[in-house]
């Protein structure tokens, strides 16, 4: 079993590495980059919210902060467009992390349900700030120095950087799951007060998890900003982003390591495809996406990963019981 799962990881990695070489259509490459970015976001969202049960519906705070810091840093440092801009990506992640400290201090004061709503409210503060402040360029947004790469090749560097961020996110999430820190997050999810009474410094642990997830999501925002060239407040601070990331985790399996990866890959590519296909049909895309979303949540409430595991388990025990029945039949 263990061996098999290692093989799956390896296969996934190989596919991910060779994909852009095989897939030459730039439109599809673009979809692939977004899929990687969203999967990385979902993975690190889950690393905090999934493990601790503190559902964050304001993850775009990190994404947008990352995107804006990428652009602002590039402009202030007078950088010219090119691969050097990628150095700003981790730096933007750090900025998102730093912004996350005061935000987390306020938001994490409240418990569960109120926390969810607070994250939404704080998200709107950020969206409004980005729209209204001068240094963010207001509704006109910001531009990053032009990147002079050929269209046929343009997305390839983004692809590999996004893949690197995704791998980092997965390793981080797996590492957390195995660490004492991860154990403490899980304990907080199950019974926060009890965890406190067993010496878990819940406030510090929650804030650390929150900020760590912000680092990765901030980097993704920075990559997005670079790839787009131009960012607007309503697209980097997008309520749909908040929900989509959460949905990916619930779709794949909330609190599991693989769930967000599956959720991210399936949903983001599907969403991109639907957007491309139905963009002329206007809001038909909203209806389809919403309906799909409802079906999944209602019929697989614990996510695909858990659903498949249960189904596999039932199947195995059925096989076993039919085998025992068969041997029993022979014996008699």
């Amino acid at each position: 079993m263990k061996k098999w799962s290692n093989l799956w990881w390896l296969a996934g990695l190989v596919v991910a590495l060779v994909l852009p070489l095989v897939m030459t259509n730039p439109a599809y490459r673009g979809i692939a980059v977004y899929t990687l970015l969203f999967t990385a976001c979902a993975t690190s969202w889950n690393m905090f919210s999934g493990y601790s049960g503190y559902v964050n519906l304001g993850a775009a705070v990190f994404y947008g902060t990352g995107a804006y810091s990428e652009d602002l840093l590039a402009n202030h440092l007078n950088m010219s467009g090119g691969a050097a801009l990628f150095w700003l990506v981790p730096l933007s992640g750090v900025v998102a992390m730093l912004i996350g400290i005061p935000v987390g201090l306020v938001a994490l004061r409240v418990r569960r349900h109120t926390y969810v709503v607070i994250t939404i409210a704080i998200f709107f503060v950020f969206q409004l700030a980005a729209t209204n402040f001068g240094f963010t360029g207001g509704t006109a947004g910001l531009t990053i120095p032009f990147i002079p790469w050929m269209a046929s090749y343009f997305d390839v560097p983004f692809y590999y950087v996004a893949l690197a961020v995704l791998i980092f996110a997965i390793l981080l999430s797996a590492g957390v799951r195995r660490s004492r820190f991860g154990l403490q997050l899980l304990a907080i999810r199950d019974d926060e007060d009890r965890a406190l009474g067993l010496g878990v410094q819940v406030a510090a642990v929650k804030l650390t998890g929150y900020v760590m997830s912000g680092f990765v999501i901030g980097m993704c925002g920075a990559i997005y900003a670079m790839k787009q060239g131009q960012i607007y407040p309503q697209f980097v601070f997008d309520p749909l982003f908040d929900i989509t990331v959460a949905l990916m985790c619930f779709f794949g399996g909330f609190g599991t390591l693989v769930g967000p990866i599956i959720g991210g890959v399936v949903l983001e590519s599907a969403q991109q495809y639907l957007t491309v296909t139905y963009s002329s049909g206007g809001s038909l895309y909203l209806i389809i996406f919403g309906a799909l979303f409802l079906l999944v949540i209602l019929f697989m409430p614990r996510g695909i990963v858990v659903y498949v595991k249960d189904w596999w388990g039932r199947r195995q025990s059925r096989i076993e019981s039919s085998q025992t029945a068969a041997t029993a039949g022979v014996a008699s």
Partner: peptide, 11 residues
Amino acid sequence: ESWLRGLTRSK
């Protein structure tokens, strides 16, 4: 144990 230590050690 401090929470910081929890980040770097296994379960």
